[in-house]
Design a protein around this nucleic acid. Structure first.
Lengths: 335, 335
DNA sequence: TTGAAAGCGTTACCAT
DNA sequence: ATGGTAACGCTTTCAA
């Protein structure tokens, strides 16, 4: 049986309120007594119970994270940053995977709320505002990173997907490409819609009309990239460049193009999105739009903490992406 | 203010013990009353408090995970499996990163124990047994996945690293290679020692003595693989094949070899370890030793649950790795 | 400076 | 079948 403040009180021959004060370094207890109690507590191997404390303070110093999957290289680092920032502020984090399934996401949120998390960070939120309201999520601070839809829930942190899509596409245009494909992400994801929109805007800015045949669907994973690329290569006039929803998709696109005998970037330029750690180690190193993953995680925690502190001025936050040019893109016709 | 069983009791005009029973589907309450109470609870938006419950049951239905970093592709999937398995059994998981720093790992464990986690899963444990005992971790169920050292703490789950190292090396030997390098992982990691040992055993089984110059150190990340490969290529007699501590190292090795003008696998065969998701999408697809990552996570949770249930027969568990032959290895002299 | 006691939300035991 | 109450570990008033 674990030792509690009552046990310490008995040994130290003081009331347990005094023990509580001493352990919390409350000034209203004699320095000498305080030191003695702390020594005894340490000797007895006392470990405070967050459960007991939470029941009275109504705070758990705990943050819940719900994410579609941490096996996505992009999310992993966001979560790593959340955990680190939280830990530095004395917060522990719960992790729950939704698998992108709203029902599972809601069940996870419910489980976290039963455990009285002080705040909730939902990465790639997939449930609707209605569903979330029914879960009464809103009565605790909520920050949504990369919201999958347009409902405004809690506070949001996103990368500027439109600008990122524009930058990627413009880069290809500047290299002389005109038949530029876009492998779209799951249209259930709002960021996919936005990147697509950025692509279209960049094309239009160059006075180009987009051939609908050049727009194909991926699934955000390599397999989807392979399938999409195969369809593009079967076209009468295949693209000379392709902007992919994300790096994982790009990986698949590169593989399919290679299998068809194309060289990257001489025969086909490829741009991704995310800048996963491995991107620079691929062959060729992948040109991509980097997301400020750690910053996103840090900001999310800071926003939660500000909200908990009753912060007056918490606002949604849109961070810029950054085009990173590597070896998978080259000027048109440079064989 | 959240609604509690007392609020429900007031509305339902029963004692709150009855409410508790009704909500827990206790048979000792009239079916009619039960239904009425449950309806009222639902209408009032009642959410049970795990904090209150834990205080009396002394269980939190919570598992703590401590891992060096989830940005390692290998760990991410192990954790994904832990979370999924835990969730299916009604357990939520805390996630803490140690960064491979013992002091941080211990601080994380302490934070989790304060929160009364029912069990602890340490992935790639880096603190010593003494340190862990001082944290009194052992009075809750502990499972260590891929222990970094040889101390026996709690129960362990590992892949058979020796056999994996042997399989990788034997594969290269069977392809006719004789000058086979090994890029070792951090020697602080026990699995690195074991894989190295497997390598040596396989070489000896073929009657070969290992040239010490062919053994170089990596750091388990691509950068380390690059540096190591550069040193190998500068050798008077460079290797024709290299077995890398893990896939990330292999990625770096491949890059360095390519940059030096070598073709993979014609000029150099490369084998990794882990079988990260991307391995099959690399160019060329990476030959590697697959670890049963999901199984490791599932087993860890099952062991914790068995221990919590007072299970009689919980035992350490060693899972086999599996050589996956892809395009990064080829027979010697097949240019 | 210290003690006594209430109370957080829940379960579980003992009565009725 | 239901009610009353103690207990879990802690913080926080209110008294002394």
């Amino acid at each position: 049986m674990a030792v509690s403040i009552k046990d310490i009180a008995r040994v130290a021959n003081v009331s347990y309120s005094t023990v509580s004060r001493a352990l919390n370094d409350n000034p209203r207890v004699q320095a000498q007594t305080k030191a003695r109690i702390q020594r005894i507590a340490s000797e007895m191997g006392y470990l405070p119970s967050a459960v007991g404390r939470s029941l009275v303070t109504r705070r758990t110093r705990t943050i819940g994270i719900v994410v579609s999957t941490i096996t996505d290289l992009f999310y992993a680092e966001v979560i790593d940053a959340i955990e680190e920032t939280g830990f530095n502020h004395g917060y522990a984090v719960f992790l729950a995977n939704s698998g992108g399934v709203p029902q599972r996401e809601l069940a996870a949120i419910r489980a976290l709320r039963e455990r009285w998390v002080d705040g909730l960070i939902v990465v790639s939120c997939c449930s609707s505002k209605e569903e979330l309201c029914a879960e009464r999520v809103i009565d605790i601070p909520v920050v949504v990173i990369n919201n999958a839809h347009r409902d405004h829930i809690g506070y949001s942190i996103e990368v500027d997907n439109v600008a990122g899509g524009q930058a990627a596409t413009r880069h290809l245009l500047q290299l002389g490409h005109r038949r530029i494909s876009h492998i779209v992400g799951p249209t259930t994801e709002w960021d996919a819609v936005e990147r697509h929109s950025g692509y279209k805007q960049a094309m239009q800015a160059y006075g180009l009309t987009v051939d609908p045949a050049l727009i194909v669907r991926g699934n955000s994973r390599p397999k989807g990239g392979i399938e999409a690329m195969k369809r593009l290569l079967a076209l009468p006039a295949p693209p000379t460049a392709v902007f992919c929803y994300n790096d994982a998709t790009a990986l698949g696109a590169v593989r399919a193009a290679r299998d068809a005998g194309l060289r990257i970037p001489q025969d086909l330029s490829v741009v991704g999105f995310d800048d996963i750690d491995l991107a620079s180690y691929l062959e060729p190193p992948l040109t991509t739009v980097a997301q400020p993953r750690r910053a996103m995680g840090e900001r999310a925690v800071e926003m939660i903490l500000a909200l908990l502190a009753g912060g007056p001025s918490v606002a949604d936050c849109m961070l810029p992406g950054k085009l990173v040019v590597r070896g998978s893109t080259a000027a048109l016709g440079q064989s």
